[in-house]
């Protein structure tokens, strides 16, 4: 074999030291090492490293290794015996262990499905509407300065009492209940409303007759009817926080009404919404005892198709100032697709 250069030599040094080179290559490499001090030094230190590694004594195993191994073997042996043992208390183990994973998987699927189903179910759209007498009592109670209970318990009404308002509400609806929410939408996709009623601000009051028996009005009328049952119901969730503030949706419009026709404007607006197949989300009046011509607000949610007709109705009830009138194409989004929402502010002129 030809003489080697330094690179070739160093590439083969390891094999040379292992005795893995053929005779010719080994001789050529040895010849190079004889004449090259650097390569010879490299080979010497490589050999020294290998010798040191070879003489490296084994670390003694920790004394607890052997007992640990024997204990693990004993445990495994017990399991193996239990698996093979016919009858006895352990006989049932293999059966259940065989089905353990499928059972756990089925339980997980069931849990997921129930949570999913629970979250999809909307709260009932049509609530038991309160009667006019209950509404009257409620208004009387509100005027007397009784503050509404934060979470009054619902009071069961007779079918006779429920019939008129429910019939109106059913007649007015032209789309399915799932299209509209029965309570203001909440932030952060929380479902706390299911377990803790949303408490309305103490100032505004609701008119259940006009609002198609909204939830809050019903609660207050229930309170008015059953004074003894006005204890706050137990709280099952965290108190309301900023997370429970209603989402901003819809558009504010102003309706100017004459002073003489101010009274009952809320009811007329709510009635128009109901006739067009909408719902009244909330009626906000001034503080109880205030002058009848104070400003009030009616929040309504309507099907998108009824938006234009609703604005026409508002024009009949009062006057929408030109600067505040939404364009025909300007449909303020409601809380669900296909719905629009308006907060109609009544201004007495």
């Amino acid at each position: 074999m030809d003489a080697m250069d330094c690179k070739q030599t160093r590439d083969l040094l390891s094999e040379y030291e292992d005795g893995a080179l053929d005779a010719a290559a080994a001789a050529a490499l040895a010849a190079h090492l004889g004449g090259c001090v650097e390569c010879a030094g490299c080979a010497g230190s490589l050999r020294a490293v290998r010798e040191v590694l070879r003489s490296l004594p084994p670390d003694p195993a920790p004394p607890e290794l052997l007992p640990g191994i024997l204990a693990a073997i004993e445990a495994e042996g017990r399991d193996a015996r239990a698996d093979g043992a016919p009858g006895g208390a352990d006989a049932a183990r293999p059966f259940f262990s065989r089905f353990r994973i499928p059972l756990e998987a089925a339980a997980a699927v069931l849990l997921f499905a129930s949570v999913y189903w629970y979250r999809r179910v909307e709260p009932p759209m049509t609530r038991p509407p309160s009667s006019m007498s209950a509404a009257t009592e409620e208004i009387a109670g509100a005027r007397a300065g009784r503050s509404p209970s934060p979470a009054p318990r619902p009071v069961r009404k007779t079918a006779k009492e429920e019939a008129p308002a429910a019939a109106i509400a059913r007649k007015a609806r032209t789309w399915t209940a799932a299209d509209l929410p029965s309570a203001p939408a909440l932030r952060a996709s929380t479902d706390s409303e299911r377990i803790m009623p949303v408490v309305p601000s103490p100032g505004p009051t609701a008119d259940p007759a006009a609002a198609g028996a909204p939830a809050f009005g019903e609660r207050r009328s229930a309170e008015a009817e059953g004074g003894a049952d006005s204890r706050p119901s137990p709280v099952f969730a965290a108190p309301p926080s900023r997370l429970l503030r209603p989402l901003p949706y819809g558009r504010d419009i102003v309706v100017d009404v004459k002073r003489e026709s101010r009274e009952g404007a809320e009811e007329r607006i709510a009635g128009a919404a109901l006739r067009l197949g909408g719902i009244v989300e909330r009626i906000e009046r001034g503080p109880s005892g205030a002058a009848p011509d104070t400003a009030g607000t009616v929040r309504v949610i309507l099907p998108e198709s009824a938006a234009a007709r609703f604005l026409e109705e508002m024009d009949r009830i009062g006057t929408i100032p030109t600067e505040g009138k939404p364009a025909a194409t300007d449909l303020p989004a409601g809380p669900r697709p296909g719905t629009v929402a308006y907060a109609v502010r009544i201004r007495a002129r």
Binding site: P58, D59, A61, P62, L65
Partner: peptide
């Protein structure tokens, strides 16, 4: 067997 080989296996 474990006693005979544990040091070598452990140190490896």
């Amino acid at each position: 067997i474990v006693r005979a080989h544990q040091d070598r296996v452990y140190s490896f």
